[in-house]
Design a protein around this nucleic acid. Structure first.
Lengths: 253, 253
DNA sequence: TCAAAAGTGTTTCCCATACACCCATGC
DNA sequence: GCATGGGTGTATGGGAAACACTTTTGA
């Protein structure tokens, strides 16, 4: 590096430009016992939007971490989860979206099997809960034991983030491997477990025969999934063939 | 709003959290006279990466504008273009990606017909040029009259941004309406002009008959494109039917 | 009459969809 | 037996790909 350049950088005064605050926010999807799509919301402890429900997230520690690392850190603090599928969704940056100051939020999507989730209310959250996602004419509703929240009641522009995350995941599921992230056990699952994940995300019923054929063609024949020569037995049912997902490097796009 | 909340916001001290700088960077694609895909690069006037080529961009004026508005402002300053198709690509936030300080860059993609581009070197740029995008075994090269730049020579992580932008646009072109943005005249174009755009972006040759059928089915039959009952005559060629793109609200996803 | 580009028709194959039907298990 | 869910076979239709062919123009 040139001397001149070293000098420039040493004397660089970042404060001459106004800087925004930056947060990482995470839309965490999971499936509940009934195979319905759920989302994790936390109840805000402080202002603004005190006592409103929101998606988890927190401020970037500038100079120390990337926003994705901040998201991972927050995710771990909020849910105890590590090594999770985290996908950048969109960056929200309207100057007025947070009443305190200009806050830019980079939203991420995480797909997590419920068995791996440890939900706990952190410092900033009075409560943390999984909510079923229900669709009606007025938009999306979030439902958990007794509680029913309309999307307009969420903090900040979090409803927009969630809507975007649902749209995105639905669009991606057919040609990406996102669905596998929601399996309880990626290295031993049945076609029908995977099918139920697809159905929950797309909010439709799928044909068994056709799903099976697509599964074999797209995943097994291409080597993404390996057929284990084992069966899982459950009472009252015919034993089911098991498959294993071969983990690959994940693309950030 | 509660009194308590008002007080909280009034007394909120944003400076207690370290904040990063934020920039908007723009990958501007266009087609040249030979229908090759081009990208706009500027030569940096100041440190860091002085005299290196980079994609245009600039700092967000925090509190005054969204990052997208900053991108539009920079785009106008650099190219004289307004009302352009701008798509958020990805947010880059590694703490070390800029030697000055932690700089988070939100990258955007713009597709602009060359006829609408007014290229001029701005305050921060010693030079601004359109470069042909060439692919070889070593990656991408950028070529303009005499100049040939390897992707590793670009400033910051801009090579990564460009590669991502190309991948994204290729993936989107078949099911989005991005290609229309590159037409000289969206309200009067031929099938073959559109076909050449597809070919440049995908870097392949397409079959005339099949492209025509897909065009009629996907765009004309769905009302996205209207068949004008006019023909454009050019010497030496059979007259070509003209079509008009019906502009719709654009989705940010 | 020839080159160049516009435009048409046909055939083949793959795949999505629909749906009827058979299989293995526990009770 | 029958309910439950696992698993198979087949018929249909539409679209993608390949390609041979015709049309209109200017030179």
């Amino acid at each position: 590096m040139l001397e001149e350049e070293k000098k420039f950088i040493a004397e660089y005064d970042a404060s001459k430009y106004d800087r925004p605050s930056v947060t990482a926010d995470i839309v965490i999807f999971t499936l509940d016992e009934e195979d319905d799509l759920n989302i994790l919301l936390i109840k805000r402890n402080g202002f603004p939007y005190k006592d409103h429900w929101a998606i988890p997230g927190g401020f970037l520690e500038a100079g120390k971490e990337s926003v994705e690392d901040a998201a991972k850190r927050e995710l771990f603090e909020e849910t105890g989860i590590k090594d999770v599928f985290l996908k950048q969704l969109y960056t929200f940056s309207d100057p007025g979206r947070d009443p305190r100051t200009h806050v830019i939020s980079v939203a991420y999507t995480a797909l997590v099997p419920k068995s791996q989730l440890t939900i706990r209310a952190g410092d900033d959250a009075g409560d943390a809960k999984l909510f079923k996602i229900k669709y009606d004419i007025n938009g999306i509703r979030f439902v958990a034991d007794g509680l029913s929240i309309n999307e307009t009641q969420l903090a900040f522009d979090h409803a927009k983030m969630i809507r975007m995350a649902i749209t995105r995941i639905r669009g991606r599921i057919d040609y990406e491997m996102d669905a596998f992230s929601l399996l309880k056990d990626k290295s031993s699952f049945t076609i029908y477990e995977l099918k139920r994940i697809y159905e929950s995300i797309k909010n439709t019923k799928l044909d068994t025969a056709n799903f099976r054929k697509a599964f074999l063609r797209n995943y097994v024949d291409t080597g993404v999934v390996e057929a284990l020569n084992e069966k899982r037995e459950e009472k009252g049912k015919r034993p089911t063939s098991l498959y294993a997902f071969i983990e690959k490097e994940r693309n950030v796009l």
